[in-house]
Write a protein that binds this DNA or RNA. Structure first.
Lengths: 183, 183
DNA sequence: AACAGAATGTAGCGACTGCTACAATAGTTG
DNA sequence: CAACTATTGTAGCAGTCGCTACATTCTGTT
C-alpha cells in the first residue's frame, strides 16, 4: 500500500516557489498569510514557523522572485548581439512581452512602489532586478556600439520609461517618443 | 459665548483635500477608513455616508490628487521656454524635486502599480497625470525644437525612466544613461 | 411651531489580520 | 527502546477591516 500522505517535509526553500507563484498572481500588498499558506499547501501556522514573521516572509519571497527573474533573463540572452540599438530595444521589449514575463512586469511596479515607500526588502529586490537587467542589456548591445556601457544605461532608462507608460495606458506616448528619438 | 464646535458642515468636497493629504503621506494601499476619517476630522461612518463605499472614496481621492498635481504643474509652467532639450529635462527634474512634489512622486508609483493591476480608478488617475505632464512638457520645449511633439514624448519617456531608476536606488544608471544620450 | 429630510453619533456585526499557547506526532540519535 | 528535537495540528486571542442598524440632532421649508 502506497503512502496516503507522501510527507513532503516542507522547508523554507520548498515553500518559496509556490509562495512566489501566488504572489506573482495576486500581488504582494494584499497577500495575507492564510491565502498564501493555502497556495503553498500549508497553514499560516507553518509559514510563521518557517519564516519567523510575515515581514521576513515577504523579504524572502521578494528575493526569490528577483532571483527567478534574473535567471529567466540570463536564459533569454541569445548567442549573438543585436545589430543596432533599435534592435536591442526591440529584442528586450519582445522578451518582456512573453506571458511568463508579463506576470512579473505587473508585480514589478508594486516592487517599485514599495521601494519608493522604503518597505523592507523592496529596494534590495528592485536593485537586484535592475542590475541584472543592465547586465543583460550590456550583453545584448551591438558589437560595434561606440559606447556600450553608457548606451545600455541609456536604453534601460528609455525602456523602463516606455514600459511604465504602457502600463498606465499610454503606450502611444512611449511609441511616438521612441520613434522621434535617434535610435 | 462662542461656539465650542463650529459645525463645519462637511461635504464630499470639503473632505477630499484632507483625505488626499493623508493619502499622500501614508499611501493608498494601507489606508483604511478609520485613520482616514481621523485625518479628515470625521468618523468612518461619515466617510461611507458621503462616498458610498471605500472603493468610491479611493476613486474620488485619486481623481482629486490627479487634479491637484495637474494644477501644480500648470502653476509651475514658466513664462519662457527652455533653450534646449537638456534644459527642459533639467527644469522638470528640478520641479519634481520640490518637497511638495516629492510626496506626490512616492504616491505616483503606487498609482502605477495599481494601474498595472487594474484597480478601479488607478488607470484613469495615471492617464490624467501623464497627459498633463505631457502638456506641460510640450509647453516647456525649446522654441526652435525641430520636433516639439515627438520630442516631448521622447523626453517624458526618458524622464519617467530616470525617476523610476532613482526611486529604486539606481540613480546613477539614469544619470549615466542621460549623459550618454544625445541630449 | 410643525414637519421632513439631511447629517451625525453610538454601537456593533461578521470577517479577517498576524501571531501564539498548547498539545500531539514524527524522525533522529543515543 | 528511550530520549530528544523538529515539525505539525487545533484553537484561539486581540486587533482591525468595511460596513450597517438604529437613534438622534440639526437645518431648512411651510
Amino acid at each position: 500500500m502506497p503512502d496516503t500522505a507522501p510527507k513532503p517535509k516542507m522547508s523554507r526553500e520548498s515553500l518559496l516557489p509556490k509562495l512566489a507563484s501566488h504572489v506573482l498572481e495576486h500581488g504582494l500588498g494584499g497577500a495575507s498569510l492564510r491565502p498564501l499558506a493555502r497556495a503553498a499547501g500549508t497553514s499560516d501556522r507553518m509559514l510563521i514557523y518557517h519564516f519567523g514573521n510575515k515581514r521576513q516572509l515577504v523579504i524572502d519571497v521578494l528575493n526569490h522572485i528577483a532571483q527567478q527573474y534574473a535567471d529567466a533573463l540570463d536564459a533569454a540572452v541569445g548567442e549573438g548581439r543585436a545589430e543596432s540599438r533599435k534592435a536591442t530595444v526591440a529584442r528586450i521589449l519582445a522578451e518582456t512581452r512573453k506571458p511568463e514575463m508579463e506576470r512579473f512586469l505587473v508585480l514589478w511596479w508594486e516592487i517599485v512602489a514599495g521601494s519608493a515607500r522604503d518597505l523592507p526588502g523592496y529596494r534590495e529586490a528592485a536593485e537586484a532586478v535592475m542590475d541584472r537587467m543592465l547586465d543583460w542589456l550590456e550583453k545584448e548591445m551591438p558589437a560595434d556600439d561606440p559606447d556600450p556601457r553608457g548606451g545600455a544605461r541609456y536604453l534601460l532608462t528609455l525602456i523602463e520609461g516606455a514600459q511604465m507608460l504602457s502600463v498606465v495606458g499610454r503606450p502611444r506616448i512611449a511609441r511616438d517618443g521612441l520613434a522621434s528619438s535617434d535610435l
